[in-house]
Simulated scan of single mutants.
Amino acid sequence: MTELTLEEAEAYVFGVCFKTGLPERIGVETEWLVQDRHNPGLLISVDRLDAALAPVEVTGALPGGSRLTREPGGQLELSSPPALSLGACVEMMAADLAVLRTALEQADLALVGRGLDPYREPPRVLDHPRYRAMESFFDREGPWGRDMMRRTASVQINLDSGEDSRGVGGYRSRWELAHRIGPVLVAAFANSPIQDGWPTGWLSSRQDVWSRMDAGRTRPPRYHCDPRVAWTRYALDAQVMCVPGDPDGDWSAPSGLTFRAWLRGVPELRPPTLADLDYHLSTLFPPVRPRGWLELRMTDAQNGDDWVVPTVLAATLLNDTVAADAAYAATEPLCPDSQRPRKAAGRQPRPAGTQVLRRQP
């Protein structure tokens, strides 16, 4: 494939990550821990999970059309197709979850909605070179990357970027509001206080894990300047996690290499291509990730049907103009760098994963 220049990479990221238009579509991704129904501390073998999922994976029996995938530690994820209404989104995911739950129950397994596995430290069960390189990358800084890959689960809400305007329905305003409400969603739906059977001191131990990982790909970019500019800089300045190649080979990237530096040339490495840039973008995990739409990634997985609540809340706050204005007003004292005119400046909001989520002694 043709090698990519820095100017081409900047133009590509600038253009594809914020697709503009009337904010209409809604999607949700629900991640789940899989536990034995009688012994939640038991590790679930790949063979047992394969057998339980066979009726769903072989027949494609998900009526709402969600995509079923597996995470590195054996977690399951259902990703709904985009819907044109909140009600349709919830109905599709609920129907698909009902089918998946039934299949697992017949194998004495259960879907559990927790931000972090409270009992187990599962092995990595996916051996794709992407996950080998990812694990190697995160191991340079400690165990947090392994914990994220193998033990965490979330609810991710997907909403259109918005129109190319300066109003409440514009992508600039929606990007800022998504970041403003992010810490609220973390705190309101935190449900992972236990790790290895003991209280961690955090209501969201999942958020604690994320806060300790590579800041250049997990912390929010600057959200009070133009989102396209901010995200392009963030993406190109993030370290390269893996260099795709031979399916059976080693995809590990040189330590400390940013995508911008790769574009400028690395003697021992082939030049990057557009496919490499797409892959790199898929390895960035900030609380709000632009993928042509906004993917809100900060909420702990929720038990039962409780995933509906953060989905409805986030969609309403961003898509209903009255609710959006109210959310702006409520967070205004904490956001001095707002793109909107404001009456008074105040403190920066504390980012997700800080002391605000800790239990008091």
Rank of each mutant, 00 (worst) to 15 (best):
R340S: 03
V229C: 02
H224A: 03
H38N: 13
Q239L: 10
P118C: 09
I194W: 14
V186R: 05
P63L: 09
T30H: 06
L159R: 05
L86M: 12
L53M: 06
S161C: 14
S136I: 11
G145S: 00
G115N: 08
A330K: 12
L84R: 06
P82H: 11
A110C: 09
R350E: 05
V34F: 08
Y328V: 02
A344V: 13
L43Y: 14
V240F: 14
A329T: 03
Y328L: 08
R222M: 15
T200S: 08
G64C: 02
L78I: 15
R120H: 01
R70G: 10
L318K: 04
D325K: 03
L284E: 09
D237G: 12
A54L: 15
S282T: 06
F259P: 06
L33W: 10
L49D: 00
S66I: 07
M149I: 04
R67F: 10
W175C: 09
S192K: 07
G113R: 07
F138Y: 15
P220Y: 14
P286H: 14
G346E: 00
D139V: 07
P271W: 05
V58M: 01
L313Q: 06
P129H: 08
P129W: 02
L109K: 07
R217I: 05
A52Y: 11
N319L: 15
N39P: 06
H38E: 03
V266G: 14
C17F: 14
G87S: 15
G115Q: 00
I157G: 02
G201I: 12
P23H: 14
L68A: 06
P247E: 06
L294A: 04
R37T: 04
R172Q: 12
M92G: 05
A51G: 06
E57S: 13
D108I: 10
G27M: 10
Q239S: 12
L274R: 11
T200K: 02
I26Y: 08
S45A: 15
G142E: 11
H224N: 05
R297D: 04
P199F: 14
G216A: 08
A94D: 15
S173Y: 11
V240Q: 01
A153R: 07
T232R: 13
D117P: 11
T299A: 09
E121V: 08
W144K: 03
F138D: 02
R120Q: 02
S154T: 07
R180N: 00
R297W: 11
G170E: 10
C335D: 14
A235C: 15
S192D: 03
L126H: 00
P349S: 03
D248A: 12
I44K: 03
E3L: 11
V125Y: 04
G249W: 06
Y171Q: 06
G304D: 04
S204Y: 01
F14L: 13
C225I: 14
R25G: 01
P63S: 07
A103G: 10
T20R: 06
P333Q: 05
V125H: 07
W32I: 03
A275I: 05
V184T: 14
P254S: 06
R124V: 15
P40K: 01
R120S: 01
W202E: 06
G216D: 07
N319T: 04
F285H: 03
A238S: 13
R359I: 05
Y223W: 13
W307D: 07
